[in-house]
Design a protein around this nucleic acid. Structure first.
Lengths: 208, 208
DNA sequence: CAATTAATATAACATCTGTTATTTTCTTGA
DNA sequence: TCAAGAAAATAACAGATGTTATATTAATTG
């Protein structure tokens, strides 16, 4: 085989190489040859593991999406009450290098997807899942009395998603204006009036 | 010349054709030949008016940016008090077909620009100008006592920009979830606690 | 009207793209 | 050890791309 160690490439290796190329050089430069080069391999590896380029791109996007959801699950594990919502948002906002890079890839894909129905579908699904998760949390908080009974979870979730996406987008353009602390501050300025603080106030420092 | 009427093409005609292609087919399909075809002309027109493709793209983006600013100026003309901020936001949010299309182009360019320093510069400038304008309005409102003295205009402007961009992005992905009325509702839910309403409350219906 | 220039069309270029086919190399199992 | 199959490399192709050069046409001016 081609590599020094015994293991060979799999689909995930190719997808990761594609991510790196996209982050560094943009989607325009992410040709089959460039991705193979990033892998330190040849185009044969790519064509062997994927039917065509759309297959590769859909796979790369799907795995990115799934990785983000796994990160959300991981961060929320064991948390209760309003802390659950906090951690959920921490996993999506670009407050760390990992999230920031994910955001970047996602965003580049989004711009491309606007003219490609298949990719657009994937984006909508991700948005819907996030929306539902946030709404679920709000629902639970409402039952416990942590948010007002007048709050409609799905509608409020839409607003939170929009604010989160906006913070992510702004961060991509001007990272120095939207450091992690500022991101949290903006988000909690919005969330503040929504949550009936019993005892503690909004959090000062977040988790990585 | 090529066209039925006597007038010939100029740089703006080419830019408009580029916009249409980008909106319809995406940036990947916006080749020199495709843009010329959209113009119902040949590539000669494009190469005559622009040094190279980057020249064309920078021009197209610059004119888009300027068009949005002109729209802001036009909508704000004559308005006073909090109404000025309202109209400013109305001009940027995708509450009408014109703004929505502008948003779409802008967004596609942004995804592309992330790997292109020259275009990135232009994006940052636009963000900064918008930020400054919003901050100016908040400053004026603070002097009049319409917003609390504790509000820091620039910081608050950053949050508003983020929310606005988020609404625009969300609208692109799921227009049915973010119709104009909903966009305004989200924005004013955030702005509400910021503005000391004297007399009237937040607006129910906006301007086109 | 003729000559000059501006505007557009056409043609040709080298390069890059995704894809397919073929060949080589490595791994595995009997 | 050696055949069989998997994985990777290589080669080739048709088409598209940005760019440049040239030719053609329309407008302008004297």
């Amino acid at each position: 085989m081609g590599r020094t160690a015994g293991r060979s490439f799999d689909r995930m290796d190719v997808a990761r190489a594609a991510w790196r190329v996209i982050v560094r050089d943009g989607l325009h430069e992410a040709s089959v040859r460039a991705i193979a080069k990033e892998l330190k391999a040849t185009t044969g590896v790519v064509t062997y593991h994927f039917r065509d380029k759309e297959d590769l791109m859909l796979f790369a996007l799907d795995r990115l999406s799934q990785g983000i959801e796994d990160a959300i699950d991981h961060q929320m594990r064991g948390a209760v009450g309003p802390d659950r919502l906090l951690r959920l948002l921490e996993a999506t906002l670009p407050v760390g290098p990992r999230q920031a890079q994910g955001w970047r890839i996602w965003f580049v894909f989004t711009g491309y997807a606007l003219a490609h129905p298949r990719l657009m579908e994937e984006h909508r699904r991700r948005l819907d899942r996030l929306r539902q998760r946030i709404a679920t949390e709000l629902s639970a908080l409402r039952k416990v009395g942590a948010v007002a009974g007048t709050v409609k979870p799905l509608k409020e979730a839409d607003a939170i998603v929009a604010l989160g996406d906006g913070i992510g987008l702004s961060h991509l353009l001007r990272p120095e204006l939207y450091p992690p602390a500022r991101q949290r501050e903006i988000m909690w300025t919005y969330l503040g009036p929504l949550l009936r603080r019993k005892g503690r106030d909004s959090p000062k420092s977040g988790r990585a």
